[in-house]
Design a protein around this nucleic acid. Structure first.
Lengths: 152, 152
DNA sequence: TTGCTCCTCACGTCACGTGAGGTGGC
DNA sequence: TTGCTCCTCACGTCACGTGAGGTGGC
């Protein structure tokens, strides 16, 4: 029977920052806002993070950069996620199927909302791309016309 | 012969802000940075804007929000555009075809670069959407399984 | 022991938000 | 004449950046 089933790779703040594409300062600021490592493990004064923190920070940054959400909005999402995580802690244990169903039913609309925001962004980007392609097309036409008259 | 060929609809700062989806404060700040209305027409102390300004501001905001460009980067793009606009002023007049060709040849890579940035963003958004859809799928599967066991 | 990364203040910066007090157009 | 929008300071805020001075892990 192995007592070493979980290797528990842990990261220092600089490693976490690099993996998530941000800085140590940002991570500390997010901690202050309650976005990350609310009860961060420490080795002395040094913060220690897990793989779960890497995933969590990456997704926060995606929501921030790709959807342009403010940190206030991220806090709201994070709080909802934490409420679910707290429930999930009891999930595997003593929860009944009816309670589990309630948890999933609450979680689904949150992800659906995020998907909706992503779709809106995609649409805007598609329109913008079409604009730019149109612009480029006319410019290239102008260019080739100038080329033709130059050859004559 | 009509002397009224251009109706010259003009906007006040609040109207421009609304059309571009921003605020008067932002417009004044952009003016200060040289992004907009460098030599803004005024009626007394009130700033006046044209349809061209509406288009210009809208595209600045698109670049800012959709691509996440800083105002510094926008200034760089705007300066390049102004250089082209200055040349375009002479375009219709005394420029030779060879000069016109040079202008288009300089303008095309700028738009190509912007399109490239848009494509990168679109790809990231697509990946994010796929992630979310995957998440949603497993959640819905869990949900329907719970429903099934509940029915038995 | 020597670097390197980490720590906590704390002030600076970017991109505006938000009044304060006043003048001008419809 | 009365609102409404505009004007110019100027301080506040959000999301960090950037040292200053110091301690701790490899």
């Amino acid at each position: 029977v192995s007592l070493l089933t979980h290797e528990e790779t842990s990261y220092r703040i600089g490693e976490l920052a690099e993996r998530a594409g941000t800085t140590a300062r940002t991570i500390r600021y997010y901690e202050q806002l309650g976005l990350l490592g609310r009860a961060a493990a420490r080795k002395g004064a040094h913060r220690l993070y897990t793989d779960a923190d890497v995933v969590r920070l990456q997704s926060l940054i995606q929501l921030r950069d790709l959807l342009g959400l403010s940190l206030d909005e991220l806090v709201a999402i994070a709080e909802a996620q934490e409420a679910r995580a707290a429930l999930r802690g009891r999930w595997a244990e003593s929860t009944t199927d009816a309670e589990r169903l309630r948890i999933v039913d609450e979680a689904i609309p949150i992800v659906e909302r995020q998907l909706e925001l992503v779709s809106q962004r995609r649409q805007k980007l598609d329109e913008f791309a079409a604009e730019l392609e149109d612009k480029l097309r006319t410019m290239r036409e102008t260019r080739s016309e100038l080329k033709r008259t130059a050859e004559r």
